[in-house]
């Protein structure tokens, strides 16, 4: 890591503080904003600023993945999920925690923040990135070789886990859909419910 002049160092620190402030504010808004669609949107914005921190840490591929998956994928997925759940958008139906539960939650999270943040500040961590680190971060070919040649087995195991999760997700959706269709409920091990007569006549007319 080449030595930066003091002005650049100051600029980097100011950039970090700005990013950190924006991340914490948007993270808070993602949890506390009244409108849940906006909350999901703020989460996406927060995730893209976290990518800025990864860029400051000289890890551009992780920043790219962060933007592609968190900002582009997960926040969009949450927004679509909210749109599929119309009652989730109704603030009047939301159950608010009791003041006691809220206080306990606040105390616990403040305790986590204070203890771990205090430890992070007190412990004598290194203040500089060691030599040679950016070379690792810049080599996409090296990363691809590490992933697919040296550790291909682990990648395949992870891919299988993800595939299993997605297949399970689809199966859950299909099973639920199938249970709503009375004719084929028996295929899924649930006893077929007798269909009322007026429903039968409705279906026949359709």
């Amino acid at each position: 890591m080449q030595e930066l002049d003091p002005l650049l160092q100051l600029f980097e620190q100011v950039e970090f503080l700005l990013l950190a402030g924006i991340i914490l504010v948007f993270g808070y808004l993602a949890l506390e904003h009244k409108d849940i669609v906006y909350a999901a949107f703020f989460f996406g914005v927060m995730a893209s600023f976290v990518a800025g921190l990864f860029l400051l840490l000289e890890a551009p591929f992780i920043a790219g993945m962060q933007i592609a998956v968190y900002t582009g994928g997960i926040s969009a997925l949450i927004i679509f999920g909210v749109l599929l759940l119309p009652r989730a958008q109704d603030r009047t139906l939301e159950v608010l925690p009791s003041p006691r539960a809220r206080k306990i939650g606040l105390l616990l999270s403040a305790f986590v923040m204070a203890m771990s943040g205090g430890l992070a500040l007190v412990f004598p961590w290194s203040t500089d990135i060691p030599q040679g680190m950016p070379e690792y971060a810049q080599s996409l070919q090296g990363l691809a070789e590490w992933l697919w040649q040296s550790h291909g087995l682990y990648v395949q195991i992870i891919a299988l886990i993800i595939l299993t999760t997605l297949v399970g997700t689809l199966a859950l959706m299909k099973m639920e859909k199938a249970e709503t269709l009375k004719d084929i409920t028996a295929e899924f091990g649930v006893e077929a419910a007798p269909m009322p007569d007026d429903e039968k006549t409705e279906e026949a007319t359709n």
């Binding site: 950190a20 991340i23 914490l24 840490l57 999270s109 771990s116 943040g117 961590w125």
Partner: peptide, 11 residues
């Protein structure tokens, strides 16, 4: 960085 990370975990 660790302080920001731990604050996010607490949040």
């Amino acid at each position: 960085y660790l302080v920001v990370a731990f604050m996010l975990i607490g949040l």
